[in-house]
Every structure is written in C-alpha cells, then in structure tokens.
Computed example of a mutant assay.
Amino acid sequence: MLELVDVRKRYGGRVVAEAVSLALAPGELVALLGPSGCGKSTLLNMVAGLVAPDAGEIRFAGARVDALPPERRGFALMFQDFALFPHLDVLDNVAFGLVERRVPRAAARERARRELAAVGLAGFETRRVAALSGGEKQRVALARALATDPRLLLLDEPFSSLDAHLRASLQVATRQRLAEAGIPALLVTHDRDEALAMADRVAVLDAGRVAQLSPAAELMAKPANERVARFLGLANVTGLGYWPQAALRLGSGGDARVLAATPRAGGLTLELALPEGRFVLELSAREAAALAEPPTVGARVPVTLDAAAFCRFGAGA
C-alpha cells in the first residue's frame, strides 16, 4: 500500500528525514514513535502532501504520489486538536468532506449518520461542537475522516489532549474501527504505551532516521541499540545490551543494598547495589509487601543477578 523510499528532508542544517524507507501493508497500522524533534510529524506531513520531500519517493498502491497535491492523494488526516468546525453541528462536520467532493447533500448526510453510529455517536447529529467532550470530539473527527473512504488514515497525536483513562479506551475503539474499515493507518506519537497498544509495527525515529522498525510485540524485548532502549524507558541499559527485570531474582539468597526506594502506582522501584554494579528493580505491591522488612535506603534485600539473562542489542533480531 503505502511505501516510502529513501525519503529525505532538511531545514537548513537540521536533518528531519534522512533516507527513510518503510512500507505499510493493506489494513496495517504503523506507529512513528520518537521524542519531539525527531522528524515524525514532518514525515507524516510529507505523506499527506503538506510538506515536499527534498528527495526520495512516496508511493501508494504502486504509483508515485509525492508530486500530487493533498486533495488528490485520497488520504485523510486527523489532527491533534481535531480541527472541527465550530459553526457546524456534528452531522455537518462529518458530512463536510463528502459535500466538498460534490456528493449530493442528502447522500452525504446519510453516510455521516452511518459513520456517527459506527463510532457510538448516534443521536449526536444536531449537537454543536462546543457542547462535546474531548472524547466525543475525537470520535466525531474519526467519523469525518472515515466518511470519505480514505485510502490511508494519517493520525497526528490525536489522543494527546485526553486524560489517561479516556485515551486508553479511545485507542482501543479507534483501532477496532480501523480494522472494521480495513484502512491502513500511520500514527505519530511520542507515547510508547500508545504505540504498543495500537500499532502492528512500530518505527522508532531518532534524529530523522528509522532507528528500529519492529512488530509492536517485539519492540520492548529486542531494542536495536542503547538509544532506542533508553527512549523506551528500559532500565539497566549498557552500551552492549540490557538486563531485563527477570534477570534480577528476588528471594534467591542475595544480599543487595538499597540505594533508593521510590513508590509508584502499583508497586515500588528500587535502586540496588549488587556485586556486579547498580541496578533498578521494579517490584509489584505484592512483592514489596512480601519482603521481611520495608526496603528503606541502606536496607538489605535478597536479590541476585542472573548473568545468563543479559540481552545483547541486535541478538535474535
């Protein structure tokens, strides 16, 4: 479906895309994951036709589209702020793209009603945008994007303004709706958990380059290098690889000294001094409660390191 071949973009001396190549299969969702400034939004805008690449090719269904204006690519873009029209009610917001394409108004509004029902907003047709919650606005924006039968959906951090609980539920609902429609999608996000929850594959961007492209299920287990591992939030990272949490064995007769103890939701994070060095151990609430004494700074806890569990970068990739 979508294919990027050696795409490059610079702004002065700053590289925002350097030899980026990737492809989306039919119905696949790929997340572009990375910190601010890594080039992920610029890459999305090049696919959308809002920014021209300096070099390389953007293809869809085998045909080049990088020279086409946005309106001729057949793609839909969902923005971070949803970009709804405040002077239109919900139904006319969803029907807007169809009306612009000269679909008869009655047919456009009927299709808009079906899309609203598909995202759980039947009965919201006459409501004004200002009266909607953040989650309702997100679903209206999704219905509007899908009403035009796009060949590709481009998602530019559309959940970032929502609270954590609502964000998680809408991620699931959006993924399900895209699967039902069979539409491939490209998602820009800086949120690791969002990428893992929504994407079939994740492209981790670093300074305009694809540092790693992996199935979401493998990303955390097989980071490509130290920079990727640290961005993903893995602990106990070295230049050669990392020690997974399973390598730190609790209750196996060791004598580790607690350097720091930080409570967190659902458990406790310990920084420990072992003979092999300093390590971070994440304990669940049950594991923390099972310790003989509260793990305060200077206390000893029975933790040993399984040297065979060390994961080298690139091994088995």
Rank of each mutant, 00 (worst) to 15 (best):
V20R: 06
E271G: 01
D54W: 03
P295E: 09
S284T: 15
S36I: 03
E115K: 11
A317W: 11
A197C: 05
E282V: 05
D193M: 12
A48Q: 10
A246I: 04
G298N: 04
L170Q: 05
G74K: 08
T126L: 15
R201L: 01
A131Y: 07
S169N: 12
L281A: 07
P53Q: 13
A83G: 00
G123E: 09
E282G: 01
I183T: 15
L170D: 06
F124E: 06
A145S: 12
R114N: 03
R175Q: 13
A108R: 13
Q176F: 05
L84S: 03
V129K: 10
V301Q: 02
R111Q: 14
V90F: 04
L29G: 02
I183C: 12
L121Q: 11
L32M: 10
C38G: 06
L240E: 15
L155Y: 07
A112T: 05
M198K: 04
D206Q: 15
A19Q: 14
A106D: 13
L91I: 04
L121S: 03
L32F: 11
G239C: 10
L155T: 09
A308L: 04
L268A: 03
L281C: 02
L153R: 11
L170A: 07
V172Q: 15
F124L: 08
T262W: 09
G239N: 09
L170G: 03
A168L: 14
P275V: 10
A67R: 13
N93M: 09
E136L: 11
A288F: 01
H165P: 00
L283C: 02
V16E: 03
P184F: 13
R111C: 00
D191R: 13
A203R: 07
R72S: 10
A76I: 07
A265M: 08
S21G: 08
E276S: 13
V202L: 08
I58D: 03
L152D: 05
R113S: 07
A261P: 00
E110M: 06
T296S: 08
R102G: 00
R278V: 09
C38L: 04
L43S: 05
T238S: 15
